[in-house]
């Protein structure tokens, strides 16, 4: 295995992330948590857009639905965070399933417009259903507590986000390299051929939408806890562009690319925070440059020039061969 393989690089980064709370200050802890949240968003969106090829624009809305559900259940029904948070993920997943219904009839631009309309409608509900959502001003969520664990809230939230980002990224990698990931890519590359092989479009499109909804919902719940505040403008079109930029810059159809894209854009987001208004310009320009000059995103450069960054849509052969040999039923766990 080459030294700079994906696994080694990511393990080093993970080790860095594990010690960061003892090295950095509250600000780096905040940015780290934000990064993990965006990793979740980018990975989920890439499954839907990059793998399954569904040009959907509802990710920011599902992010918002996760945040609002988690926040409102705490404020309105006084549920504890750890009960409200899973509910937020479940609601976002269900909403993802509902959005998948038009996706069976529509594709390309029409799907993009429909999902965009849905996202705007969600904004409208956040803004105007004041009896529930508190309207344009948003609302404060309670500070979450990790008691009885002996950690302070920011540190606890940092590790919770890291844990979920790592687990759900591994999950996405495994799904992508399975018959499900291949069914997604088959639908992206040719719906008619996919169907002729017995791949059910309804089932797999719905699954891709639901998965991206789940990832966005989890991210939303964490986001509400990180900011202690939920307001409509956090989940607007700019947020959507941000998610899209991450997967385009990192690489469509690549979980690794999602990680790269999330890293780069969170860095830019923070670096440009002092210069209000430049963020939009920078992201727009970045998106253009990549769409025009580097379609495969940054990960395509790595895949071409470095070994150990491949992302096959199947189990790595070494393991496959081990398993195929009779009498090797007890393969060491991975």
């Amino acid at each position: 295995m080459p030294v700079f393989s994906r696994r080694n690089v990511l393990l080093v980064l993970l080790a860095g992330a594990l010690i960061l709370p003892w090295m950095g200050n509250p600000y780096t802890l905040f940015v780290g948590t934000l990064l993990f949240i965006y990793v979740l968003l980018a990975v989920g969106l890439n499954l839907l857009v990059g793998y399954a090829g569904q040009l959907a624009f509802a990710n920011a809305a599902m992010f918002g639905i996760g945040a609002y559900t988690t926040g409102l259940l705490q404020v309105r029904l006084e549920l504890p965070f750890f009960a409200a948070f899973p509910c937020g993920a479940v609601v976002a997943t269900l909403v993802g399933l509902v959005i998948s219904l038009p996706a069976l009839r529509l594709s390309g631009l029409y799907l993009a417009l429909t999902t965009l309309a849905f996202a705007q409608a969600t904004q409208w509900v956040f803004l105007h259903w004041e009896n529930v959502t508190f309207g344009a001003g948003g609302f404060k969520t309670p500070l979450i507590s990790f008691a009885p664990l002996p950690v302070e809230t920011p540190t606890g939230l940092y590790f919770l986000s890291l844990l979920l980002a790592v687990l759900l990224t591994l999950f996405a990698w495994n799904v992508a390299a399975s018959r499900i990931g291949r069914a997604f890519v088959a639908i992206r590359d040719g719906e008619v051929a996919a169907e002729s092989l017995g791949i059910d479009l309804l089932r797999y499109k719905a699954l891709a939408f639901a998965m991206s909804g789940f990832y966005a919902g989890v991210a939303g719940g964490l986001y509400s806890a990180l900011l202690n505040f939920v307001a409509p403008e956090g989940f607007d079109l700019f947020q959507m562009v941000l998610h899209k930029a991450m997967i385009v810059v990192g690489g469509l159809g690549s979980v690794t690319g999602s990680l790269l894209g999330a890293g780069i854009l969170v860095f830019l987001l923070e670096a440009l925070r002092a210069f209000k208004g430049t963020q939009e310009i920078a992201f727009g320009a970045l998106l253009l440059v990549f769409v025009i000059f580097l379609r495969g995103g940054l990960v395509s450069v790595l895949k071409r020039n470095a070994r150990g960054w491949e992302e096959p849509l199947r189990l790595p052969e070494r393991r496959a061969r081990l398993l195929a040999r009779p009498g090797t039923a007890s393969v060491p766990g991975e």
Partner: peptide
Amino acid sequence: QLFRGMTVLENMICGLHR
């Protein structure tokens, strides 16, 4: 109608989807 984003082998495995 091969899936262009896949290798030849991955295309073949798709034939086993069902």
